[in-house]
Simulated assay, not measured.
Amino acid sequence: MPQRVLAGVDEVGRGCLFGPVFAAAVVLPGQAKAPLAAAGLTDSKALSPRHRQRLVPLITAQASAWALGQASAADIDRLGIRAATEMAMLRALQRLPKAPDLVLVDGVLPLRMWRGRQRTLVHGDRRCLAIAAASVLAKQARDALLVRLAERFPGYGLERHAGYGTALHREALVRLGPCSLHRLSFLGKVLSGPRASC
């Protein structure tokens, strides 16, 4: 009897002021779990950047399938953050070579766009290695993109805060105004009036 294919899915960048929200979907075979657990795989937020970087090649080598998806700042402004996050997750799942039999979603909110079987898992990135692997891949891919975008949009410190609403980022927004990849729907409390776009 063939084994069920389970995919863990997670997102990163939901609360940022800048750039896309990223998601990853990961399918881990049973034999991958022990070496990944031994390597310290857990929720990406609990890992140092160096540790996450070391885990990426281990995850991609051990996974039977993995994929990334994203939704742009324009998608977020148009659809809202929940629907855009679901879009990123759906895109990651659709890029897997085979549709999983069950999707394990981090958090409490179901993936409304997914037509297959799914289960939500609170703190899933700490409790399920496939979700933890997805969180690490999504985090590393998004952070790498933000470092590249920092060169295209200098002055915001994107390479330092990855688009989150730090004091440095907020000060730069007030000084420079938003760029084309800022989430305008997130900036109401940051910007008190219209600013010139860079």
Rank of each mutant, 00 (worst) to 15 (best):
M1G: 14
M1H: 09
P2H: 09
V5K: 14
V5S: 10
V5G: 00
D10V: 12
E11Y: 07
V12Y: 07
G15I: 13
L17I: 02
G19K: 02
G19D: 12
P20R: 10
V21N: 05
F22G: 02
A24N: 08
A25D: 07
V26T: 02
V27Y: 04
V27L: 12
L28D: 05
G30M: 07
Q31L: 02
A38Y: 04
L41G: 04
T42Q: 13
D43I: 04
D43P: 14
P49R: 07
Q53C: 00
V56K: 05
A61S: 15
A61F: 00
A63T: 01
A63W: 00
W66H: 14
W66Y: 14
A67E: 03
A73D: 08
A73E: 06
D75K: 03
D77V: 06
L79S: 09
G80T: 11
A84F: 08
E86N: 12
L90H: 12
R91Q: 11
Q94A: 08
D101I: 08
V103C: 02
L104G: 09
V105T: 08
G107I: 06
L111P: 05
W114D: 01
Q118E: 06
T120C: 14
T120G: 03
L121Y: 00
H123G: 03
H123N: 10
G124A: 02
D125F: 00
A130P: 01
A132V: 10
A132T: 09
A133P: 05
V136S: 04
V136P: 03
K139H: 06
K139R: 15
Q140F: 00
A144I: 01
A144D: 14
L145V: 07
R148S: 15
R148Q: 14
L149E: 13
A150G: 14
E151H: 15
G155T: 10
R160S: 12
A162T: 12
G163Y: 09
T166L: 03
H169D: 09
R170K: 14
G177I: 01
S180E: 12
S180Q: 10
L187G: 06
K189W: 01
S192N: 03
R195Y: 09
A196R: 11
A196K: 11
A196C: 09
